[in-house]
Design a protein around this nucleic acid. Structure first.
Lengths: 164, 164, 164, 164
DNA sequence: TATGAATGAGGATTCATTCAT
DNA sequence: TATGAATGAATCCTCATTCAT
C-alpha cells in the first residue's frame, strides 16, 4: 500500500490525498476506524431490538453481524490486519474499540439471564475470539464461512463464555 | 525490524546475519517457525499424558500451555504478529500449522468422550481462538493473564466447542 | 559511477533519476544509446552527400566523423567503455549497432568502386577498428588526435579493407 | 568475479588468496599481465625467425598469433576486458604494454622494407586494431574466426598501415 | 484547490578484507 | 600456513512527504 497506489486507485493525485490525511498512517487508521464504527453501529442496532430476544438469539445475531462485516471486503480486511498493527496503539482506534467494549458490557449488565461477574473480561474475550475467527475464516477458510456449523458453534462457544 | 537493528540487538554485524539467513524475511520466518514448532512439541507432549486425563483436564492443559508459550516473550510475539502476515502464505509455516492441526484432529478422533463430526472445523476454531486470545491478552490485557478466570473461561469455551 | 554521484553531477536527487530511468543500468544504456544514435545520424548524413564523392573522400569523411564523435567528451567515453560491457548484450544497443552496420553495408553494396564479396565482414572490421582506434587515441594518445597522420593512415587502412 | 568465487574455483580459501595477492585488483592485474607477457613472448619468438620472412609473412604470422591468443580462452578475455579498465591505468600493465610496443618499433626500425617515419604511431595503431578485432571476433563474431578472409584482410590492412 | 515532480532519508543486500583459530 | 566467519562500508533502490505551478 503505497501512497501513489492509493492515489491512483482513488483517482486523485498524491497531493490531494495529503489534503485529507496528514500521513499515510492516518489513511490506514481512517479505514480501520470506519470498520470499527460500522461494527459499533451494527452492534448498537442489534442491541436496540434485544429486549425481545433471548440471549441465544442475541448472541447469534451479533456473531452473524460480525462475520458479515468481515466478509464484505475480504481483501481489505486482510490488508488492514497486515498493516494496522504497525500503526501501533493509536489512540483513536483504541477509543472506538473501547466504546464498542463499553457498549456491550453496559448492555449485558442490564440483562439478568447471565452472571455479571467478570463481565469486562468476558466481553473482551468474546470480541477478540469472534473477530479472530471471522478474520481467519475469511482469510484462509472460505469454506467455513459457507458451513452453517461455523456460525452455530461460534455462537455456542460465545454463549458459554457469557453464561460462565 | 530493520536488519541493522536486528544485527545490533543480536550483537553481530549485518553481514553475519546474512551468513545465516538469505533474506530479512527468512529471519522472520525462522522465528515464527520456531514458535510454531515449540507449540507443536508442547501439544504433542501434553497429548502423550492424555490417556489418563479427562477431556476437561486435557483442554485446560493445552490452553495453559498455549498461554505460557505466548507469555514467554511478549515483545517478540507482538512483533511477530505485526510482521509475519506481510511475509505472506509461506509454505514452511503453513506446513507446521497444518501439522499441528492434524495432530490434534487425529488425537481427538481417538477419544470417545466427544462427537467426531466437524472435528476439523472445530479444531481450526479452537486453535484460532486460543491463539488470538493468548496473543491479545499478552499484548494488551496483561491483567487478564494473571486472572485465573481467564484461563478457566477460555478452557470452558473450548470445551463447549469440542463437545458440540 | 554510483547513482548518488550521477545525481549530484546532474544536479538532481537520486529519486529524480529513478523517475526517468528504471535502473542504474538503464542510465548507462541511455548514454551509450545516444552515442550510437548520433553516430548513425552522422553516418547517414555523410552517406547522403556520398554520390558526389570518391570512395577515398567518403572513407575519410566517415573516419573523421567517428574521431570527432569520440573526442567530444573523452571522459564520458572512457567511462562508457568501462561500464557498458558489464551491462551485457543489451537488445536495444545491439539493435542500434546492427542498424549502423546494415546502413553501411547497404550503401556500399550500391557502389561499384569496390568489391561486394565479404561486405558484411569488412564493414564489421572497419567499424570495430575505427571505433577502437578513436577510443584508444582519445583515452591514452591525445597527441595522436592532433597528428594528421593518424586520420590519414586510419582512412588508408580502412580503404584497403574496403577495396579488398 | 568475487573473491569468494575465485577462491572456490581455485580450490583454496579466500584467506589463502590474500596470501598471494594483496587485493582483488592485484588478481585481475596478474591475469592481464600474464596475457600481455604471453603476447610479448609470442611476438619476440616470431621476430626471431623474422630475418628469413618477407614483411607480408611476418605480419600475417603476428596477426595469426594475436588471434590465437584471444581464442584460447574467450570467456576469460571477455571478463578481463570488462573488469580491467576499472583497474585504471595501472603502472605494471602499462609497462608491459609499452615493452611490447617498443619491441615492435625497435624491430621494424631495422627493416628497410617499410618507411620509418611515424613508426611509433603506426605500431600503436596496429596493436590497437589487431587487439580490438581479435577481441570483437572472439566475443561476438565467432563465425569470423573461422573465415580465412578475416585473417587475410586484417593482415592486409595492417600491412597497409606499415607500408604507409 | 489539485497536481505530480522532486526530494532524500532509510533500508536491504553484497562483498572485499581481516584475523582468531 | 590455511581457513572461512565476521565485519561494515558502500551501493542500489523505494516511497512518504513537500511545494512550486
Amino acid at each position: 500500500m503505497t501512497t501513489k497506489r492509493v492515489a491512483e486507485r482513488a483517482g486523485v493525485s498524491v497531493g490531494s490525498l495529503y489534503q485529507y490525511f496528514p500521513t499515510r498512517e492516518a489513511m490506514l487508521v481512517a479505514v480501520a476506524e470506519r470498520h470499527l464504527t460500522e461494527m459499533k453501529a451494527v452492534v448498537a442496532r442489534t442491541l436496540e431490538s434485544a429486549p425481545t430476544m433471548t440471549l441465544d438469539e442475541l448472541t447469534r445475531a451479533l456473531v452473524r453481524a460480525a462475520i458479515e462485516a468481515h466478509a464484505t471486503d475480504p481483501a481489505l480486511h486482510r490488508r488492514l490486519m497486515e498493516e494496522v498493527p504497525r500503526v501501533g496503539r493509536l489512540a483513536m482506534l483504541d477509543d472506538t474499540r473501547t466504546e464498542l467494549h463499553a457498549l456491550l458490557v453496559a448492555f449485558l449488565a442490564t440483562r439478568d439471564d447471565l452472571p455479571h461477574d467478570h463481565l469486562a473480561l468476558v466481553v473482551f474475550m468474546a470480541i477478540t475470539a469472534v473477530d479472530a475467527l471471522a478474520h481467519a475464516a475469511v482469510v484462509d477458510r472460505a469454506e467455513a464461512l459457507r458451513d452453517p456449523a461455523f456460525e452455530t458453534k461460534l455462537a455456542d462457544a460465545v454463549l458459554r463464555l457469557l453464561r460462565g
